[in-house]
Amino acid sequence: MLEAVQLVSPDGRALTITVWTDWTLVVQLWSDVGIPDYLWPPEERSRTPILGFDDSNNVIHAVVPRLDNFGKIASVDFELDSRKIMIKSMGGNLSVGID
């Protein structure tokens, strides 16, 4: 089960996206790459690159958040050099789509 998605920058920071208890997305910028402390216990978690992006140096050209009816983030679209990544909450689960 996917619990979070991290977009890692060349300077070592990580933009981490996960689904919170109210089924909205939480987007946080961390100063280091690693498993966030709220994913407990950390020793039972692992990080796996998204297929096709593991050695990629894509530039993010646009970030488009989409809000739900309550004004909370329900999905985020990232436009990269040659692809789009869509991250959203579906029924409380994290979903990733790649075009």
Rank of each mutant, 00 (worst) to 15 (best):
R66A: 10
S95E: 13
E43V: 08
Q28A: 14
N58G: 04
V64W: 11
P49T: 05
S9P: 00
G97H: 11
P41C: 07
A14L: 00
V5I: 10
E44A: 09
Y38R: 10
V64I: 12
V26I: 10
P36Q: 06
L15M: 11
S56Q: 00
R47N: 00
R83C: 06
I17L: 15
V64M: 10
P65K: 05
T16V: 14
L2Q: 08
P49N: 10
V27I: 15
L80S: 01
P49S: 12
N57D: 09
L7S: 01
K84L: 12
L29S: 03
L15T: 07
G92Q: 04
D81W: 02
V96P: 03
D55A: 09
W20E: 15
T21F: 12
D81I: 03
F78L: 12
V27H: 05
S56F: 00
S56I: 00
K72W: 11
M1V: 10
K88T: 08
D54N: 10
W23V: 05
G92C: 07
L15N: 05
D77G: 04
S82R: 10
S82V: 09
S56C: 07
V33M: 02
V33Y: 00
R66K: 09
L2I: 11
G12L: 02
E3F: 12
P65Q: 05
A14N: 03
P65V: 06
I73W: 04
V64T: 15
D32C: 08
A4S: 09
V5Q: 02
W40F: 11
S95D: 11
L39V: 03
V26D: 15
I85Q: 01
S95L: 09
